[in-house]
Design a protein around this nucleic acid. Structure first.
Lengths: 210, 210
DNA sequence: CAGCATCCGCTTTGATACTG
DNA sequence: CAGTATCAAAGCGGATGCTG
């Protein structure tokens, strides 16, 4: 990208990360950790392969991303955030929080379930932190997600749970609506959401105030 | 801009504010308050006039900016941030803080002194909050800035002070370097910085920890 | 002068095909 | 798997012209 040519820290930041796709690549590396090129492509639906290659090269030059050669048995190139890249997380959180009210209907948009990790962990909390912890499994999008309560907070990771307290499956927007409390259970079920197990466990994961 | 087509709050936020120039327009409206088209152009050196008109229209459609007809004697159109637009401030602050380490030399970059308002107020504090407050005047860039200490914090506004404790003038990068403590007074003076008044008052404005 | 709209050349982006 | 090559389309920057 062309530099803005302004002696201003915001403008200089945007000179480095204001390009199309750049912050979404940071999101992928932040959520997934060190990743292969192909996995990045999967997490960035819509990106052209040359775009991804170009951006990764620029971000490497700018000290945001590092390329590491994984030793056997992986034997492939991994991309990871540098320290400077990780320092972009507060920017992503601020932007993501600002965008939360825009998450109405999914419409035609693509969805990857690992995108839920940071929103769940930062925007949600355990409604009953003194009760024994609970484990939920979300089945929406391309892979299941395990959600657990820990010390009043919420943790989320891709994978399946051995003995979840509840399993919720359905379309992403409705599942998110149920967790946010903007869609009641009756409406959700009419829209194809299914809940197996203890519905009270589900109510433990609630949006934080503010 | 083309939508990313991703059901993710970060991607949806970038659909609205990820375009080139958009966040810098938010900066201008945030720092200056309701502004005329011409004043926005002055604060956004390098923008093409059709770009500014296009962006303002898009931002209005997206509920970030509102157009108000100022009554006489101003009798002109003013652009201002909506509430939703003001809610972007945490995003600007996060990006600006991330960009702070990039503020080395000014080089060929343009500079407008009102850009200093938020960095001064958010990244600096009063080093001796129990002492009587002080007033500084910065003469760098296109217009002077008055910096005052209030309740341990720092306030900055365009204008001149009646009886400033100190006046510091010189090139923006060196003046900023002195305030940040990354350039000592001897070096600064060799680079053309001049300090009139009480140099101790100047030392009251210090970068916050973190 | 304030507030745009138009035109034009250049750069960036996107879709697809192809390669070690 | 991890890219490169190619080409069309869209976006951007600069100059200029128009309207109250």
């Amino acid at each position: 990208m062309r530099s803005y040519g302004q002696y201003c820290s915001l403008a200089r930041a945007l000179d480095l990360v204001g390009d199309r796709w750049t912050l979404l690549i940071v999101r992928e590396l932040g959520v997934r950790g060190p990743s292969r090129y192909t996995d990045l492509r999967h997490g960035l639906p819509g990106i052209a392969t040359n775009m991804l290659a170009d951006r990764l090269r620029e971000m490497e030059e700018n000290g945001i991303v590092a390329r590491v050669e994984a030793p056997p048995p992986i034997a492939t190139t991994l991309f990871e955030l540098t320290r400077r890249g990780q320092e972009l997380m507060p920017v992503l959180f601020a932007l993501g929080r600002w965008g939360a009210p825009l998450m109405g209907e999914q419409g035609e948009d693509e969805f990857r379930s690992h995108w839920l990790k940071y929103p769940l962990e930062r925007l949600f909390a355990d409604a009953a932190p003194d009760e024994p912890p609970v484990t939920l499994e979300l089945r929406t999008g391309d892979e299941p997600i395990v959600v657990t309560t820990v010390d009043g907070e919420v943790r989320a990771h891709p994978g399946t749970a051995e003995h979840p307290d509840a399993v919720i499956s359905g379309d992403p927007d409705v599942v998110i609506g149920v967790l946010r409390g903007s869609v009641d259970l009756r409406t959700a079920k009419r829209q194809g959401v299914r809940i197996d197990g203890d519905a009270d466990a589900l109510a433990r994961v609630r949006p934080k105030a503010g």
